Amino acid sequence: MSTLKEALAHRRSYYAITNKSLITDSEIEDIVKFAVKNIPSAFNSQTTRVVLLLGEQHLKLWNIVKDTLRKIVSEEAFKATEKKVDTSFAAGYGSVLFFEDRTVVEGLQKAFPTYHEKFPIWSQHTSAMHQLAIWTMLEDAGFGASLQHYNPLIDEAVIAEWGLPENWELVAQMPFGIPLQEPGKKEFNPLEERVRIFK
């Protein structure tokens, strides 16, 4: 197992993945549950909701994506889209769906009106931390993953398919599987332009 710094450093986007796993489904569930339990949130609001889809349930998600996109893009454009979905996302072992609970956010807005405008932003921060944590731990377990955003196009169909609360707002989708190839080289902007230190 990597140190946290090592795991963060090698976390990348993988688009060529297979439907294989080096760990048990139970261990994947533990990764998700660990993140949901331990990732911080503003006011300890715990607004993030996560759905783990494996096997046929994972494939259902990407069929929903294709069915949705087929209705709104040209036939020619859909061919490329379908290939991308089938080879980069549906080909994986599973998917993690990230939601934020609007009811909790709205309750905080009412309880603390001074921060009314900030709670939706802080909610997104919480989701982002969950995404990074789960992504990093999945990769450390041998998976490759990427973060996708087919919301809001698929929101209603996803809520209906899995009987989820309507107040859950879909934020992102993370397909994962064993990588077939290494990711491309990552370019870094100079840290001098991104970090300022005062002593």
Rank of each mutant, 00 (worst) to 15 (best):
A35G: 00
T68C: 08
K71H: 07
F43E: 08
Y15M: 07
N19G: 12
W62L: 02
I39S: 14
A80Y: 14
A35D: 03
N19E: 10
K37H: 06
I28P: 14
F78V: 07
T48L: 02
R12E: 03
K5C: 11
R49D: 01
L53G: 01
T48Y: 03
E29H: 12
K60V: 09
N63P: 05
I17Q: 02
R11V: 10
Y15A: 04
T24F: 13
E56L: 02
K83L: 15
E56M: 00
E29S: 14
T87V: 12
W62K: 02
I17A: 01
V85T: 00
E75T: 14
D67L: 12
K60G: 09
K71S: 13
T47V: 11
K79S: 13
I64S: 00
V65D: 03
V73E: 09
A90W: 09
V73K: 07
F43W: 12
L52Q: 05
E27N: 09
S95P: 02
Y15L: 08
K60Q: 14
R11A: 10
E75L: 14
A42T: 11
L22Q: 12
V36N: 07
A16F: 15
S21C: 04
P40T: 01
S26W: 10
K5I: 14
R70D: 13
K84G: 10
H58R: 04
S88W: 15
I23G: 07
T68D: 05
G92C: 01
S45P: 05
V51T: 04
E75R: 14
T47Y: 02
A80E: 15
L61N: 05
R11C: 10
E76F: 07
I72D: 14
Q46G: 13
K84W: 13
E82Q: 03
D67G: 13
K83P: 05
I39K: 10
I23L: 01
A91I: 06
I23Y: 06
V51R: 08
S95W: 00
N63D: 05
T68Y: 10
F89C: 08
A90D: 05
K66H: 10
A9T: 13
K37I: 01
S88A: 10
L52N: 02
R49A: 03
V50Y: 04
T81Q: 13
R49C: 03
T81E: 15
E6L: 03
N38M: 11
S21G: 07
I72A: 09
S74A: 11
A91V: 07
G55T: 00
V36K: 06
V32G: 03
R70W: 12
V85P: 01
L52Y: 02
K33E: 09
L69H: 08
S13W: 03
E6V: 05
S95N: 01
I31M: 02
I28D: 09
R11W: 04
V51S: 02
E27Q: 10
E6H: 12
S21K: 04
V65C: 06
Q46Y: 04
K83D: 11
P40R: 02
T24H: 12
K37E: 05
V65F: 06
N19L: 08
R70H: 13
A77R: 14
E76V: 07
S95V: 00
E75P: 07
A7E: 08
T81S: 15
E6D: 15
K71C: 11
F34G: 04
V85D: 00
Y15F: 07
